Simulated assay, not measured.
Amino acid sequence: MRLQMVSDFDTDGTGPLFLMFHGYGNDESEMVRIIDAVYAGTGEKPDYLSFRGTYARPYMGGHYWYPDGCGVDERQRECAAVGEALTQLLNAPTFEHRRKVLIGFSQGGYLSYRLAKAHPYLFDAAILLSPSFQGEIGAQLPDSHTRFFLAYGSLDSTIPFQDQINARTVLESGRDFVHHKYPGMGHAICDEEIADIRAFLTAHK
């Protein structure tokens, strides 16, 4: 698998390197808009690799990481394939010294969770924004130094409420975890969420 992406990073940078994964039907620019909002007004520039979903959505445009409505085994298989390609990329000397932060929305949030679970000592943090979480009932995180940020809107009807509860239950088993629920927000991103992501990152510089 060859991952397609857009990137903006300083090879001599010392800050976090963001590895970003968009939601179903979108593309790599979705996450760039989000991380640019997080850093707006700070005087700092984020370093990132923002990846395009593995599959193009026919007729409708956009991309996705796994087919909508597919089974748990297929979801996990697709995420593992992305993880294999990503770890090969990150083995390059350019990236080995960087703190690596996963950030994903919806499908990309679930993918980020699976990457952190499969590679527990590779990523400094994982920011999971309205992640899909089907099929993870009873899952446990391995021993890991990854910090997790989880967020949902109170009116998110795209992700079943039980899956949202399960996401929190699973991630609470980790070493470091924060959870946010945004009143009145659906399956989306809000200004308060952007501020909370900024605070999460600032607290762990």
Rank of each mutant, 00 (worst) to 15 (best):
Glu136Met: 14
Arg33Pro: 07
Phe200Val: 06
Ser29Leu: 13
Leu129His: 00
Glu74Gln: 13
Asp73Gly: 02
Asn91Cys: 11
Ser154Tyr: 10
Ala92His: 15
Leu171Cys: 07
Val101Phe: 01
Asn26Phe: 03
Tyr182Ser: 08
Asp124Arg: 04
Thr169Asn: 13
Glu136Ser: 11
Ile137Gly: 07
Thr42Lys: 09
Tyr121Trp: 14
Ser50Leu: 04
Gly62Met: 05
Gly62Lys: 01
Leu86Glu: 05
Pro16Ile: 01
Ile35Val: 13
Asp12Val: 11
Ile165Pro: 07
His145Val: 11
Tyr66Thr: 06
Gly186Pro: 11
Tyr113Met: 06
Gly109Glu: 05
Tyr182Ile: 10
Leu3Gly: 10
Gln164Pro: 05
Asp36Ala: 07
Tyr121Asp: 14
Gln164Cys: 09
Thr169Tyr: 12
Leu155Pro: 05
Ser112Asp: 07
Asn91Gly: 15
Glu78Ser: 03
Val178Gln: 09
Ile34Pro: 08
Glu44Trp: 01
Tyr152Arg: 00
Thr42Pro: 05
Asn166Leu: 02
Phe133Lys: 04
Asp12Ser: 15
His119Asp: 11
Ser106Leu: 04
Gly138Trp: 07
Lys117Pro: 03
Thr146Asn: 03
Asp68Thr: 08
Leu150Asp: 03
Cys79Leu: 02
Leu102Thr: 07
Arg98Trp: 01
Ala81Phe: 05
Glu192Thr: 15
Cys70Ser: 14
Tyr66Lys: 02
Gly108Leu: 05
Phe123Ser: 05
Thr202Gly: 01
His204Ile: 01
Asp27Lys: 00
Asp191Thr: 15
Gly71Ser: 14
Pro183Asn: 07
Leu171Glu: 08
Arg147Pro: 06
Thr158Arg: 10
Ala151Phe: 08
